[in-house]
Amino acid sequence: MRKLALSLALLGMFGTPALADEEAERQAHWAELREAVFGDRAAVAAADLIALEAPKRALDAALVPITVTTKPGSDVTGLTVVIDDNPGPVAAKVSYGPRGDASLLTLRVRVNQYTYMHAVAETSDGALHETAQFVKAAGGCSAPVGAGEAESLAQIGRMKLRLSGEVAAGQPVDAQVLIRHPNFNGMQMDQLTRLYTPMRYVQQVEITLNDERVLSMENDISLATDPAIGFRFVPRAEDLPGKLKVVVRDSDDAVFEQSFDVPASGS
C-alpha cells in the first residue's frame, strides 16, 4: 500500500514517468527519420493545414487504409507519409505537378508494429507541416504470402481507375487508381515452402493528364498488396475530354502503363 501511495505521489509529480520515457524514445526516433528524409529543415506542427486519418486499431495490419488531407488552397507541393516503426518507413513521397491537387491522398499500407505514422506536407515556400497518428496494428510486414498475392502476380500491372463526382473544368476531381501488384516486401514467408518471397514492389507511380503531371510518387516497401492510390486532379477546360495516364515502375524495373478516358461530365 505504501508502494502504491508512493507511485501515485510520483505520478502526481512527474506524470507517468515510464510512458514519458517511451514517448521520448519514439520522438527521438521520429527526429532521426525526419532528418534522414528532410535534412535539418524544421517542421511545424500544423494540424490546421494537414490531417492524417488512420484507424487507431487496424483489423488487418497488412491492409491499413490511410487518408491525408490538406487544406484546399494551401499551396502544397509535396506530401510524405512515414510509418515510423516499419522497415522502409517512407511509405510514400508524393510531389504534385500543375494538374495535381494535394487536398486528398489515400493509400493502403502495411504496418509492422504499434507505431506512430507521420504525414508531412511541403508548401511552395519550402516550409514543412507535419501531423502524426498512433496506429495499433502489428505483423503486417511479415504477414504470409497467400492466394491474394498469387492472383496479383498473375494480373500484375493491370489497373483500374475510378472517378467520383462530376468532372468539370477548374474543379478538383476525386480519383482512385487500383494497381494489381503483389508488392512483395521481401519479408513475407511462404507458409508452405518456408521460403521468403523475393522482394518486388511498386517503386514509382507517375500520373499525368494529357501529358501534364498530376503527381509522381516514390514508394518503399510499406504499401499493401494491390496499391490503391486516391488523389485529386484539376482539369482545365481544354483538358476535357482527356486522357489520364498512369505509369508504374517496380523494383524489378518492370513498367506498366495504362490510359483512361476522362469524360467531360456535368456543368
Binding site: 516503426d85 522497415p87 509492422n112 508494429q113 521481401g186 521468403y196 523475393p198 522482394m199 516497401i221 523494383s251
Partner: peptide
C-alpha cells in the same frame, strides 16, 4: 520475437531494421 527478415536484395549496410520495442 523473431528478427525482422532482411529482404535479400537489400544490401546489409542499407538495411535499417525497425526498432524492437519490448517489456522493460
Amino acid at each position: 520475437g523473431p528478427l525482422p527478415h532482411k529482404p535479400e536484395t537489400i544490401a546489409a549496410e542499407e538495411w535499417v531494421p525497425p526498432p524492437h520495442r519490448t517489456i522493460p
